[in-house]
Design a protein around this nucleic acid. Structure first.
Lengths: 133, 133
DNA sequence: ATGGACATTCCAGTAACTGGAAGGTCAAGG
DNA sequence: CCTTGACCTTCCAGTTACTGGAATGTCCAT
């Protein structure tokens, strides 16, 4: 199977696949006589794994770890679970951060008439508010 | 006032301040005889504005626009409000994205025993799941 | 023959910093 | 005066995950 077809099946871009190969994230496929990459089904599985994990927000390094666990018959599922739950914590952190931003912004927006006049509590507030830690 | 003190008051790093100056985001301060940057109170205000806006997740370019509105006596507050609400929309999008990730991850984690055995539905799922659009 | 898919290497851009190196001057305190 | 830390500039490059472009081809199916 050529890279174009693999890209389609994995939901990735062929350049991205070459990128992943170049950084050693995924294994190198066989080569046909033409020099074209010749992907086996297991290669597609690996790439699909990467694509899924990326979509879930795992970094390339985290995915590298996940793939290592996937390949390791002697792994403990606790290691996998730990990685996932750590990632959830990061997401929770980000969710809180964004929610706080949103709250502040909505608060500011509500105090703004949003008309043709120049008076703007948003701008006033931005230049006065001490940055929250 | 020297850059170190300004940095402290604005809640920014002195290198970051020089960076903002280099990209034309903030105005250049006067210079003392020594060649040191000599910041006035209005400069501190501007930098504080930038720091506040960054903390609220606005990009440098968005802040550039906000600063332009701040400096424009003829602005309409509707322009400011539009910028802010657009930013809130982006945040909402990101919040949804993160929440969806979290949901999937928690679902996967719940199905994982997290013990010494190698069986892991998380890994299985990652290699099978078709990436959601 | 043609057009699209594929190959490689090299370079660089994206956003917002931030670090390091190199080579200084300035200012305050001991 | 000496010392130490703050300040100055320029230049280069790293971070993360791609992704684009250029250049220069070969391969394959119609």
């Amino acid at each position: 199977m050529n890279i174009g077809e693999v890209a389609k099946r994995a939901g990735l871009n062929s350049r991205t696949i070459r990128f992943y190969e170049s950084i050693g994230l995924v294994s190198q496929p066989d080569r046909a006589r033409s020099g074209y990459r010749d992907y086996a089904e297991k290669d597609v599985h690996q790439l699909r794994f990467v694509a899924s994990a990326r979509a879930l927000g795992f970094s390339v390094e985290e995915i590298r770890q996940l793939l290592a666990l996937y390949d390791d018959r002697a792994r403990s599922s606790s290691d996998v679970k730990r990685l996932v739950l750590h990632h959830v914590e990061e997401i929770d952190r980000k969710l809180q951060e964004l929610a706080a931003m949103r709250r502040t912004l909505m608060h500011l927006a509500e105090r703004c008439h949003g008309d043709q006049r120049p008076e703007c509590p948003i701008l006033d507030e931005l230049s006065l508010v001490k940055r929250q830690q």
